Amino acid sequence: MGNNFAAVHKSLEGTVGNWNRLVNQAESRVVSRARRFRDLGAATGLDEIVELPQVAALPTLPSSAELKALPEAGED
Rank of each mutant, 00 (worst) to 15 (best):
G2A: 04
G2Y: 04
N3H: 09
N3R: 09
N3Q: 11
N3D: 15
N4T: 09
F5L: 10
F5C: 15
F5W: 14
F5Q: 04
A6F: 08
A7P: 04
A7F: 05
V8W: 08
V8M: 11
V8G: 05
H9W: 11
H9D: 07
K10Q: 14
K10S: 14
K10R: 13
K10D: 13
S11H: 12
L12Q: 14
L12D: 12
L12N: 14
L12S: 13
L12I: 13
E13W: 08
E13Y: 09
G14K: 08
G14N: 15
G14I: 01
G14T: 10
T15Q: 14
V16Q: 08
V16A: 14
N18K: 15
N18G: 13
N18T: 15
N18E: 15
W19S: 04
W19D: 02
W19Y: 11
W19P: 01
N20A: 05
N20W: 09
N20G: 05
R21M: 08
R21V: 06
V23M: 00
N24P: 00
N24W: 00
N24Y: 01
N24M: 06
N24V: 01
N24K: 10
Q25N: 10
A26D: 10
A26L: 10
E27Y: 03
E27G: 05
S28W: 01
S28K: 14
S28P: 04
R29E: 13
R29T: 07
R29F: 00
R29W: 05
V30M: 11
V30K: 09
V30Q: 14
S32F: 00
R33E: 15
R33A: 12
R33G: 03
R33C: 06
R33T: 08
A34Y: 03
A34W: 01
A34H: 05
A34L: 11
A34I: 04
A34C: 04
R35T: 06
R35Y: 09
R35W: 08
R36W: 06
R36I: 00
R36L: 01
F37N: 12
F37G: 06
R38Y: 06
R38G: 04
D39I: 00
D39V: 02
D39W: 02
L40G: 06
L40R: 13
L40W: 07
L40M: 12
L40E: 13
G41Y: 02
A42I: 06
A42Q: 08
A42Y: 06
A42D: 08
A43V: 06
A43M: 03
A43F: 03
A43K: 13
A43I: 01
T44N: 00
T44C: 00
G45Q: 03
G45L: 03
G45R: 02
L46W: 03
L46C: 06
L46G: 05
